[in-house]
């Protein structure tokens, strides 16, 4: 649902479309783009929050900021939403898909309806959006799309395997997309954050491994600039996950992780 549209489509302006724009990580990424004068299209489900982010980005120097209020679980609205955004920016340049939820594993593991909701929140809405955008980018023969997955997708653990399974699906989907679109000059980036201090994790006690959204945003910016493929952020998670992935299953299944 476009609450604000421009009269003329700006064809040559650098743009970044942000889905789940109210996410703390997404806000930090949008801020970096605003400082570089990008035009930004923000998609989220809360108008008031989006307005607060908009004034921030405009003040920082974004050449233009539009707001699109949309619950991204309304899959049947995706086409209309994307049409509206495209009408505004002309063609896709950079896209970030950031929305997600972190339900309590204990609450959802005994309830399929809640499990399905988690899959919609963390995998299906991303895949629906990425499908349309990827096809449009393929036709453009240009564009970069960064998708936030998670280290949680690298191996299933009893403490969050449903969320983890969603992220695993996103990771595998993104890998295939990257492979397919490579020939069309379209670049797909998989972002795998570790622990990040955001509203999503407000209830979890913080320790030394925790990163700030600004740190993660810097890595995402550099991934866009240097066409990186898979980004663990902060970097040391690549090695933590390397170890975790190599623990033999007969041992792993006994661990309290």
């Amino acid at each position: 649902m476009t609450t604000e549209t421009t009269t003329s489509a700006k064809l040559h302006q650098k743009s970044c479309v942000v889905f789940g724009a109210t996410s703390a990580i997404a806000q930090a990424v949008a801020s970096e783009h605003a400082k570089h004068g990008y035009a930004l299209a923000l998609v989220g489900r809360n108008q008031e929050k989006l307005e607060q982010i908009k004034s921030h980005l405009v003040t920082l120097g974004a050449s233009q900021v539009s707001i699109h209020v949309q619950d991204l679980n309304a899959f049947d609205k995706h086409e209309e939403l994307l049409q509206g955004i495209l009408a505004e920016i002309g063609q896709y340049d950079r896209v970030l898909i950031a929305q997600g939820t972190l339900p309590e594993q204990r609450d959802i593991e005994k309830n399929y309806a809640l499990t399905e909701q988690c899959i919609k929140d963390n995998a299906l809405n991303t895949i629906s959006l990425a499908t349309s955008i990827a096809n449009a980018m393929e036709a453009q023969k240009a564009g970069k799309i960064a998708i936030i997955s998670s280290v949680a997708g690298d191996r299933g653990r009893q403490s969050n395997y449903i969320y983890g399974a969603c992220k695993a699906m996103v990771t595998t989907f993104a890998a295939g997309l990257r492979n397919r679109l490579q020939a069309s000059n379209v670049h797909v980036i998989t972002i795998k954050p570790g622990f990040v201090d955001t509203p999503m994790t407000a209830h979890i006690p913080k320790g030394a491994l925790w990163a700030q959204p600004e740190d993660v945003a810097k890595d995402i910016m550099s991934a866009f600039e240097k066409d990186k493929n898979i980004v663990y952020t902060p970097w040391f998670w690549r090695y933590i996950m390397l170890i975790i992935q190599h623990v033999p299953e007969f041992i792993f299944k006994k661990l309290k992780l």
């Binding site: 004034s55 921030h56 003040t59 920082l60």
Partner: peptide, 10 residues
């Protein structure tokens, strides 16, 4: 206030 880091107007 660590999450209240937005600019509002200049």
């Amino acid at each position: 206030s660590k999450q209240l880091t937005r600019f509002i107007h200049f």
